[in-house]
Design a protein around this nucleic acid. Structure first.
Lengths: 200, 200
DNA sequence: CGGTCAGGTTAACGCCCGTTTACGTGGACT
DNA sequence: AGTCCACGTAAACGGGCGTTAACCTGACCG
């Protein structure tokens, strides 16, 4: 090694492929996209992808794993960075909204293509997702102590659904969309759970 | 009504197949389910399905079309049956929540497998969905007149996402889940949009 | 009774598509 | 200069799966 700036070129290749594949998977579904389509999307054609990935399944696996990791890391960071629970909850919401608005394709793929994962990959992704949900559950329960855990979990999933709806609507400009989703998410939690974390 | 119970036998066959297929499609995705799997699920095997449907695509088409129709009809009825907009909105929410809780498989299929539809089928389904969204948009705008149409549409999609999250969480009993989702849905609309339809 | 028809069955066909193989080629390091 | 090796390509393979074909049956009806 010893190469100073050798990697970006190589890493970029894989990432470029993953990005293109994500876009295609989101639009047409995993099985609706051929290996040739993915290749064509990055200018090479067909089996050349096997220089970069072991299989088509491996692409999806890596894609979903990295999404789940990013989501979890971001969530943990936001919570750690903000002192009180109420603020943490607002930060979590903002984080998830930003993610969904910036990478709608990734959100779509993660939701729609869990079933197409290899068993071990699915286990990994599921585990990461569970931990992310737990971050939300804990934060929710700190702002609303008497909410029981199952309810908090269901509420968290509901908020994910709300925010992840973004790929289906989209025809608002980014800032308006972010504001709308954040407000709705916060309101759905504050207004519906016992002991709202906000106004009395 | 004269005829007591003549038709169910024949109609039941198709419907039985559609129900089984919906369950399977929801769990494994359209392409993850073979024609043989569907057959096995209703006790017959393989190509026998072609006595009832022209093709596998036709099954999905019929399935999604009927879901969209049921959703739209129910929505229209609920709105028509309830006088003022605020009440209509609550009825719409209840209707959608009940649907999602009673037929989670159908909800999942409708969301995840639009891409697998034939072009004409997709157009049909999309049109029905659009009309259903319009019902919501109109109701929302009647309760909150100064919300512009695009915002109302985005909010409607967000609420759908919230309610449709039900297949992913589920581990609450039905009534609690219904109450939670309804409250969150209403709160997300009331609390986030200008001129909430409820309190002050 | 003999014919029709709805509803099944199994076997075969044919295509699509992921994967493998065999083969080029240009740049980087010694 | 010679040698690797990362990166591509085009062609062939092979399995899975939707669909079709050919054939069977029992129920109903004239």
């Amino acid at each position: 090694m010893g190469g100073v700036s050798a990697e970006p070129a190589k890493q970029t290749r894989r990432d470029q492929i993953l990005a293109a594949a994500a876009e295609l998977f989101a639009r047409h579904g995993f099985h609706g996209v051929g290996i040739d389509d993915i290749g064509a999307a990055v200018g090479i054609s067909g089996p050349a992808l096997y220089r970069h990935f072991r299989s088509k399944d491996a692409m999806l696996g890596e894609m979903l794993t990295s999404i789940s990791e990013r989501l979890l890391d971001g969530g943990l960071n936001r919570v750690a960075a903000s002192g009180d629970p109420a603020r943490a909850l607002r930060e979590l919401i903002r984080w998830h909204v930003d993610f969904a608005l910036d990478d709608p394709a990734l959100i779509t793929v993660q939701i729609r293509n869990l079933a197409n994962l290899t068993d071990p990959d699915r286990r990994r992704v599921r585990a990461l997702q569970r931990r992310y949900v737990e971050v939300w559950v804990e934060t929710i329960r700190k702002t609303s102590p008497e909410v029981d855990e199952p309810t908090a979990r269901a509420a968290a999933h509901a908020v994910f659904g709300l925010i992840n709806s973004t790929p289906h609507s989209a025809h608002l400009d980014r800032d308006q969309m972010a504001a709308l989703l954040s407000q709705m998410a916060l309101a759905s939690l504050s207004g519906a759970l016992p002991v709202p974390g906000r106004v009395s």
